[in-house]
């Protein structure tokens, strides 16, 4: 599968796809998209890169084992739910929002961070599974 075309293309595709996945993640609150889809697209980007350049390169690119993304994402999601409890004495998972929307992203609130957590966990899960399997295949 290591063709020149694919390898060259994937070098450009990876950043584009990653950007796209973040775009999908951020717009999810207003238009189709969100953490799940974003995370899946990001992991597909990495899988594609692995097909083209080999698993070693991809792992080098990732720097850390994707398994660590899972606790990270879970922590972000959990903390975004915990914030209202700790900071404002509201029930767990109460949505909190900044008063003024920020350009491009729109309103910023705890739900956004929750979605980012989901994005990271999904990426961690998919990459862990795929990498583990291809390594031991």
């Amino acid at each position: 599968m290591k063709t020149i075309i694919l390898r060259t293309a994937s070098n450009y595709l990876l950043p584009i796809l990653l950007l796209f996945s973040i775009f999908i993640l951020l717009r999810g609150h207003y238009l189709p998209g969100g953490g799940f889809v974003g995370g899946l697209i990001a992991s597909i980007a990495f899988v594609l890169h692995a097909f083209a350049n080999g698993l070693k390169d991809t792992k080098k690119l990732l720097k850390i084992h994707p398994g660590f993304l899972m606790p990270l994402g879970l922590a972000i999601a959990f903390l975004s739910g915990l914030l209202p409890v700790l900071g404002f004495g509201e029930p767990f998972m109460t949505g909190l929002w900044l008063e003024y929307p920020i350009p491009v992203i729109g309103a910023i609130g705890t739900a956004l961070f929750f979605d980012i957590g989901v994005y990271i966990v999904v990426q961690g899960v998919v990459l862990t599974i795929i990498i583990t399997i291809s390594e031991s295949a």
Binding site: F36, L40, V122, V125, V126, I129, I133
Partner: peptide, 17 residues
């Protein structure tokens, strides 16, 4: 269904392994 699709991926990969 959205959550079901994603969960089923986890289930399937686990089953395959």
């Amino acid at each position: 269904i959205l959550t079901a699709i994603v969960i089923s991926f986890g289930l399937q990969s686990f089953a395959i392994i």
